[in-house]
Amino acid sequence: MTRSRDSFSMSHPLVNFAFFVAVLGMSMFCLHPLILGISLVSAIVYGVVLRGWRHMAKLLGVFIVPGVIVVAILNPAFNHNGVTLLFTMNDGNSVTLEAIVYGVVLAATLAVTTCWFVCVNAVLTRDKFVYVVGRPFPTASLILSMSFRFIPLFLRQFHLTTVSQKYLGRDMSSARWWQKIKIALSVTSSMFTWSMENAIHVSDSMQARGYGQYHRRRSSYSPYRWDRRNVVLLLCVVVLTAVSLTASLEGGLAAQYDPVIVVSGISGASANLWTWIGAGAFALLANIPLAIRCTDAAQWRRYERSLNVGGSQTSTGRIESAWR
């Protein structure tokens, strides 16, 4: 599976941003188990597509599963609300069924959010993030961009300076503590001078290229294009979100864990039409990235096949590519 060419990652940052806001928002505020389950599965599948199953398995095994267990255990230990008393602890506090269930739901929300953030990191790269921030606040985006330029430069210089001081016999690892303080001070002073010097050069370079020299307002360029495909994608996100929200407002996705568990379709309330509409819309929403990835892959296969039919390749070649 190729990880590099992800159709959703290649679409406009605003589409990416809208999608993640919608999905994360729904997952965090609508605590219906159906939504959480759909969200978790979609996030894991998309995460595997983007980063590989090893990465996701490691994340799940090392971080998410233990985290989920801790939260699920800790919640009933501190939260004693709920009507179904299971047993009373030694210190007199009661453990309730509702608290346990709520703990599990909280833990699931945590897991869902973490998994989605793996995808956010892979899709909403740094420059897209700068762009999204820069739409309403152009100055902030310039500052962000300059910081992203400066931070690696600073870290590199810091590393080089430490090494150079080592060459001069000032090695942190072998020094006594008072020598360490001295070395740290001289590295800090060197870095300070360097930063000031760098700032002067950058400011000269900015002014020489007209920064602050024009009366007109600065514009903000981005290499992203807003085309029909992005409009369609954004519409899908908006419509599906609207449908899920409506379903939620209509009570189809009601979920309450305290003091009584009322979850439509599972306990305390029966499932209605809105439950299925809401869950369906959300399932579609959460799988938009996978869906367009699959459609694009299918489109490419059709395209390849059409080339083969065109004649230059043999029939075996055609059969092979069909099997692929």
Binding site: R126, D127, V130, L142, S145, M146, F148, R149, E197, N198, H201, V202, D204, S205, M206, R209, G210, Y211, G212, Q213, Y214, R216, R217, R218, S219, S220, Y221, P223
Partner: peptide
Amino acid sequence: SQVVTDKVWHELAFGLENQG
């Protein structure tokens, strides 16, 4: 030290952005 932004394309656009 005369590079202002973090991306090549942004660096090229920087002076033009200043002109609005």
